[in-house]
Simulated scan of single mutants.
Amino acid sequence: MSKIIALTGAGGILCSTLAKALAKQGHKIAVLDLRIEAAKHIANEIENDGGIAIAVEANVLEKESLQIAKKEINEKLGPCDILINGAGGNHPLGTTSNSFLKEEDMLNDTDGFKTFFDLDPEGIKFVFDLNFIGTLLPTQVFATDMVGRSGCSILNISSMNAFTPLTKIPAYSGAKAAVSNFTQWLAVHFSKVGIRVNAIAPGFFLTDQNRSLLTENDGSLTQRGQQIIDQTPMGRYGEPEDLVGTTLWLCGDGSKFVTGVVVPIDGGFAAYSGV
Rank of each mutant, 00 (worst) to 15 (best):
N156S: 07
T164N: 13
E122N: 10
P138T: 08
T135A: 00
S159P: 13
I157D: 01
G123Y: 04
F128K: 01
L166A: 15
T164P: 00
E122L: 03
D118H: 05
F126W: 08
L155Q: 08
I124Y: 01
I169D: 08
V141R: 01
I133V: 11
I154H: 00
I169G: 10
N156I: 12
D118P: 10
T164Y: 11
A162W: 01
K168S: 03
D120Y: 01
L136R: 02
T164L: 11
V141Q: 02
I157A: 06
T144P: 05
M146Q: 13
D118C: 07
S159A: 09
R149V: 11
M146T: 13
F163I: 14
I169L: 15
P138W: 04
F126E: 06
T135E: 01
D118W: 07
I133T: 11
M146G: 13
P165Q: 07
P165T: 06
G151I: 05
T167I: 11
L136Y: 00
I154D: 04
K125Q: 15
G123L: 01
F128E: 10
F142K: 07
L136K: 04
S158M: 05
G123H: 05
S153I: 04
N161S: 10
Q140C: 03
L155N: 08
D129V: 03
F163G: 06
R149T: 12
T115I: 04
L130N: 07
A162I: 08
L137N: 07
G148A: 12
T167Y: 15
G123D: 00
T144M: 14
T144L: 15
N156P: 12
